[in-house]
């Protein structure tokens, strides 16, 4: 039962934070809502016994990405923008579009339910050491993608420095 409670609590945090992120006027507030939402996602990870990803989510997003966002928000003058219109002219069409996609998704699930079943919660049990499992797989089977990911990060860092530096 506690499971169910936590799921709805975290889901509310995730969706509420996300809604606030896309609606609030002040960008700093948006960022804080985003932190809330991403923390909720971290909680969802924890519920699914993905402890390692939980830690990664907290450290990387809340610790890293959010700080980056806040820096940029302060670097770029957003005061005038905050007083401005927040949504572009196509917002009605966009929201309609999104709702249509959602509705169609619901329709698909409805019409296709019964095609699959999901395991009951009691069976959610990965082996004890989640971090160990990940490490073993990451450094054996996924070693090459892992290294490629590190190159990707390096390229991203170099690229962003190059773009953000004051032009000569």
């Amino acid at each position: 039962m506690l499971d169910v409670f936590f799921f709805y609590a975290f889901a509310a945090l995730v969706l509420g934070g996300a809604l606030l992120t896309v609606t609030l006027r002040n960008t700093v507030h948006c960022a804080i809502s985003l932190i809330a939402s991403l923390s909720g996602v971290a909680g969802i990870f924890l519920l699914q016994k993905a402890e390692f990803l939980f830690a990664v989510q907290i450290i990387v997003y809340v610790g890293g990405v959010m700080v980056l966002f806040l820096f940029v928000i302060m670097l770029v003058n957003l005061d005038t923008a905050a007083r401005d219109r927040q949504f572009n002219r196509q917002w009605i069409a966009a929201v309609a579009c999104v709702l249509a996609i959602g509705a169609e998704g619901v329709y698909f699930v409805r019409s296709g339910s019964g095609a699959w079943t999901f395991a009951a919660p009691s069976e959610f049990a990965l082996s004890a050491g989640n971090t160990e499992d990940i490490a073993r797989m990451l450094f054996s089977e996924y070693l090459v993608p892992f290294e490629i990911a590190s190159v990707l990060l390096l390229v991203a860092v170099v690229g962003s420095v190059l773009m953000a530096r004051r032009e000569a």
Binding site: V98, I101, E104, F108
Partner: peptide, 21 residues
């Protein structure tokens, strides 16, 4: 405008799904 293009993209998705629906 970036977002107009993205909207067209989303509309395309709606249309594609609608074909199935």
């Amino acid at each position: 405008h970036l977002q107009s293009y993205a909207l067209v993209f989303a509309m395309g998705m709606v249309a594609l799904f609608s074909v199935y629906v």
